[in-house]
Every structure is written in C-alpha cells, then in structure tokens.
Design a protein around this nucleic acid. Structure first.
Length: 363
DNA sequence: AAGCCGGGGAG
DNA sequence: CTCCCAGGCTT
C-alpha cells in the first residue's frame, strides 16, 4: 500500500467533522418546510410520517398542498384512521402511486387502534407498518425519535456516491451505498434527524444530478468525486427499459338527466380503486382495445381529440368519445351515474385530463 | 432480482 | 427527449 492510498482513506474522525459542517450549513441554509418545527420543538411523529409517505418518489413542491389539506382535514392519526377510505383516496387524487394512500390509511388504523395513536419509536417496529419500508422507517426513527438510523434516499445516495466516489451501479449496489452512508449515522445520537434532512436539502439544492454547485457545498473538502472531477457522472445507474406506447378510448356517457357514467377501478393494479371515466382496454398500436360489453350498443361521437399521459412503465394516448341520452344500459356495480360537477378533483390525473376536455361542452 | 406503480419539473 | 424525485410492495 502506498502512502497516498493510505491518506486517501477518510477516517471516522473526519466523517464526524464533515457531519458537523453539514449541520452548520443546515442551521443557516436549510429549507423551511411545513413539517419542520422551527425552534427546536420535538417533531410530531404523525406529521413526520405523513410527509415522509407523501414525499416518496414525489417532489416537495408537489407534496405541499396535499400535506396541508390532509393535516387540516385530519389533524390527528385517530382522525385519519376514522376517515372514510373514499375521502382519503379523493384527497390523494393527483398525487400518484395510489397504493401509498391505501397503505397510509391502513397504517393510521393500526397506529390508532393497536398503538393507542402513538407511532413506535424503533426503526424495526416502524418497518412492520403498512407503507413504511427501509427508507421511511429510518427517516421517522431519526427525525421524530432521534434514533441513529441510517437514512438513505435518492438524494443521499447521490451525495454518498460522490463523497466516496462509489462507482458501483445502482440499484444492485445499494447495500454498498448503505454501508458508506452508515459511516455518517452509526452511533450518532445527537441530531440524526437534522443531519438526514440536511443531506436531503443539500441533495436537492447543491449536489444535484446536473450542474451541481460544488463550490458552496459543505462536503466539498472531502468529496472524492470532486477531486477527480467525476461528480457529474455519479451515481452510476443501470439503464431503464424503454416504455411501450399504448392506445385506448375514453368515454363520456350522459343519461337524459345530464348525469355522467363513472367507473370505479378494481382494487388491484393500476390506479387501484380510483374513480375513473369508462375506457376501452389499452393496447399497443390501437389494436386489441376492447370496449366494455355493457357499452357496445352505444352510438359514440368521435371528438377527433385525444389526451396523452405518461405512466411509470408505459405511455398512453386516449381518444375521446362522447354519447348522450343513454339510460337503459346494463351496468355492473362498478359503474355509477353522477353529476360531473365537483368530480374533477376526485379523479386521477390521467382521467382528469379528458374530463376537463369533456366538461368544456357540458350543458 | 425484477417488475409494477403516477405525475410533474428540470435540463 | 431523458432523468429524477424524502420508495414500497409483489412475484
């Protein structure tokens, strides 16, 4: 071993020093977010949990109005537990990944009924709860209960990959990333929650995927990637599969009272349990798109309009079809007639788009 | 280990 | 256009 490679290894003492610099930066430049308490008050575990679930794979800006709405509607975990699931899903509509909302409600019920409304403070116990996985259990344990859990989200993965110049590809190398991240958290009982949130703030504003602002980074002095000028190339991730493009039809069907036909989607799969407009099945190149049997005899008017939408694993184009004065349709229990007024905000975005188009010509 | 699951914003 | 975002669950 050469002397240079020996001095290349960062020590735990230096880790502690950089952690301190990160906290100094945080106290001065950290974001002020609605779920962060201002003057050193103890964090409310319900608030921490709620924002962590909402923030999963979602930008903070998108979460803000939903977080405010949920907290004003259901101020405590008991309130949320006792809510009607339809109301919870409607309040979540537009935020995406709807399984999160189902698990949120399930988790609230467990905490309310089995834990007397108090979230358990240990990461292991938290991870047993619905919708709380490796990241979220660590985040709640650290932020709400000051536990030295290793918090690692996408931001922290990126920071660690650069600070230690980790060149192994994600997601396979996640355990390696976790080991490096643990060097900052293990045994650190002073401000683990603040430190985790500080890293996330740095990840969102300084150590960004592109155009990172290394010159103002509190970790600059120890950053191996910066020393090699490879920070923009890290972390390395295996390429995702291309998305197929699917096509289908979406239907606006009125009865003679002006009510519109809505569809409650199945409890499993895409947009599970959400309220939708009726559609055909969706297929590649417009083939294999089949209309629900109960709608086969309807005479539709083609709008010559369509809406595009992007899901995680496919693109979708829906052609708009309209029909009015339908009454005697043979419908199963998953379809229902309802006035379209006030329905827009209860629909997932893929259906809100055509809904808004149709509403322009309604009445 | 790989696939499924939303929606929006940045570059 | 591509990539990413305070990821978790299922198979």
């Amino acid at each position: 071993m050469t002397s240079s490679s020996k001095t290349n290894k960062i020590t735990q003492k230096e880790i502690g020093e950089y952690r301190g610099q990160v906290l100094v930066w945080y106290d001065k430049h950290g974001r002020q977010l609605p779920w962060r308490n201002q003057n050193g008050e103890a964090a409310n575990p319900y608030h921490v949990w709620l924002c962590e679930i909402m923030c999963q794979q979602t930008t903070v800006q998108a979460v803000m109005p939903y977080y405010t709405k949920f907290l004003s509607t259901w101020p405590t975990v008991h309130d949320l537990a006792n809510a009607d699931n339809d109301d919870v899903m409607a309040a979540w509509a537009g935020l995406g990944y709807y399984a999160r909302a189902r698990n949120l409600h399930k988790c609230a019920k467990v905490v309310s009924q089995d834990f007397n409304g108090k979230f358990p403070p240990s990461q292991d116990a938290l991870k047993e709860l619905p919708g709380i996985g490796d990241y979220t259990s660590a985040a709640i344990a650290a932020i709400a209960f000051n536990q030295p859990a290793t918090v690692m989200d996408g931001n922290i993965e990126r920071i660690m990959s650069r600070f230690f110049a980790i060149k192994d590809a994600l997601p396979k190398a996640k355990p390696i990333f976790k080991d490096y991240t643990a060097r900052f958290f293990d045994g650190y009982t002073e401000r683990p929650g603040d430190f985790a949130q500080a890293l996330m703030d740095i990840g969102s504003s300084i150590c960004t995927p592109k155009n990172s602002k290394c010159m103002i980074c509190p970790l600059l002095g120890g950053c191996k990637a910066y020393q090699q000028n490879i920070q923009e190339t890290l972390p390395i991730k295996t390429k995702k599969k291309p998305r197929p493009h699917k096509f289908g039809e979406v239907y606006w069907i009125e009865n003679e009272h002006g009510d519109v036909l809505f569809h409650r989607r199945p409890e499993n799969g895409l947009l599970a349990g959400m309220i939708a407009l009726p559609t055909s099945s969706w297929g590649i190149k417009g083939h294999n798109t089949q209309m629900p049997k109960s709608l086969e005899n309807i005479d539709f008017q083609d709008y010559n309009e369509s809406v595009d939408h992007v899901f995680t694993h496919f693109d979708l184009t829906l052609s708009l079809k309209k029909s009015i004065k339908n009454n005697a349709l043979f419908l199963d229990e998953n379809f229902f007639w309802k006035s379209p007024n006030d329905m827009a905000d209860k629909l997932p975005t893929v259906f809100k788009k055509p809904f808004v188009q149709f509403m322009i010509n309604y009445k």
